Structures are given as C-alpha cells and as structure tokens.
Simulated scan of single mutants.
Amino acid sequence: MKLILAAGLVAGLAGPALAGACGTEISALEPRLTEKGRETIAASSGGKEVASRREAQAEAATEKGTSPSALPKGPAPGSAETQATADVAKASGGGTGVMEARASLNRARELDKKGDEAGCMKAVSDAKEQMDKS
C-alpha cells in the first residue's frame, strides 16, 4: 500500500515538473520577445520622423510655389535620412517576426496549461525561430 501511495505521489509530482520545463522556457523567452518588440517600435518611430521630414519639405515647397512632385523621390545617397530609412526597413521586417513569435508563445502557454509538453516545446521553438528571423 505504501508503495502505491509513493508511486502516486511521484507521478503526481512528475506532471507539474515536466510542465514546468516548458513554462520555464516561456518565462525565459518572454523578456527577450518584449525587448525585440520595443526595438521594432523604436525603429518604426524613426520611420515616422523620416516621413514627417518629407512632409515638411513638401509643405515648404508648396509655400514657395514649387510643386511637391518636383522634390526628389527619395533621400540623397549617403545622407542621414538614407541611413534612417535603411534602419527602419531592416527593423520593420522584424515586426512580423515579433508578432508571429508572440502568437507562438501564446500557443505554447495554452499547450502548457493542457499538459502537452511536446507541443509546448515545439511552439517555444517556433517562437525562437520567428524571433531570430526579425
């Protein structure tokens, strides 16, 4: 009888311990994903600055009687605006990866709650790959 109780106790403890492994992975990945999202948002804000500058240039041209269509179609090669535009383009691709990674991490949480360790770990792995793409 004691052996059966001990086996039941060990089995009862093993379930949460196994589920905890994926939960630990989720907890470790969450701050990295949050930081990656912040970086993407910051880059997006930089893109808004570039767009704002271009809009101001178009307004100034209109006030001087010049058609905005006569303005250059893009930033001058080698300018700070060119670099800012490139930075935004590079980081904005990460926005999709961050969103996909967040969805995979949420899926991992659900699978962890259901006790699906293998599915949870696969979803965490997917989230890591998606985040690394960005």
Rank of each mutant, 00 (worst) to 15 (best):
R38S: 08
T96L: 12
A76K: 15
Q57R: 15
E110D: 10
L3Q: 14
N106I: 08
G65Y: 12
K122F: 09
A91T: 04
A51Y: 05
D87Y: 02
A28R: 02
A89K: 11
V88C: 00
G94M: 01
G78Q: 11
M99I: 09
R32T: 13
G78A: 12
A123Q: 02
E35V: 09
M1C: 05
A6V: 05
K64E: 13
K133D: 08
M99R: 10
A86N: 04
E63V: 10
S125T: 15
R109A: 12
M121Q: 12
K64G: 05
D112I: 04
E30W: 08
P68I: 13
G46E: 07
D126W: 02
S44W: 15
E30Q: 11
A43H: 07
G78V: 14
L33E: 02
A123I: 01
G78S: 10
G47C: 02
K133G: 04
L33Y: 03
E100R: 03
E63C: 02
M1I: 04
K128N: 03
K64V: 07
L5Y: 10
V88E: 01
D116P: 00
M131C: 08
L33M: 03
T66H: 07
L3W: 15
P31R: 12
K133Q: 10
L33K: 04
E129T: 10
K73A: 14
S27F: 06
G119M: 01
A60G: 02
A61T: 09
K113N: 08
A19G: 04
Q57C: 03
D112L: 06
K64L: 14
G115F: 08
G74R: 15
K133P: 00
T24C: 06
R38L: 15
A123L: 02
T66W: 12
S92M: 15
K133M: 05
E110W: 03
V10G: 08
G95A: 08
G37T: 09
C22G: 01
A101F: 06
K73V: 12
L105R: 01
G65W: 12
A89P: 01
E55D: 13
S92Q: 13
A108N: 01
V124P: 00
R32Q: 15
S27Q: 07
C120W: 00
K48L: 14
L13C: 11
D116A: 02
A28K: 02
A86C: 02
A58K: 14
S69A: 15
G46N: 06
A56Y: 04
T34D: 13
A101I: 01
V98N: 02
C120T: 00
E39Q: 14
L3I: 13
G115Q: 04
A42V: 07
E49P: 00
A43E: 07
A58N: 07
G23T: 04
L13R: 03
P16G: 07
E100Q: 05
P75H: 07
A108H: 05
S27C: 01
G65N: 10
V50P: 00
K133F: 04
L3T: 13
A80T: 09
K73L: 11
P75N: 07
G74K: 12
E110S: 11
T24M: 12
D132P: 01
E55C: 09
E63W: 13
A60P: 00
L18C: 03
M99D: 03
A61C: 08
E39S: 08
V98Q: 01
E59Q: 12
S44Q: 14
S44A: 14
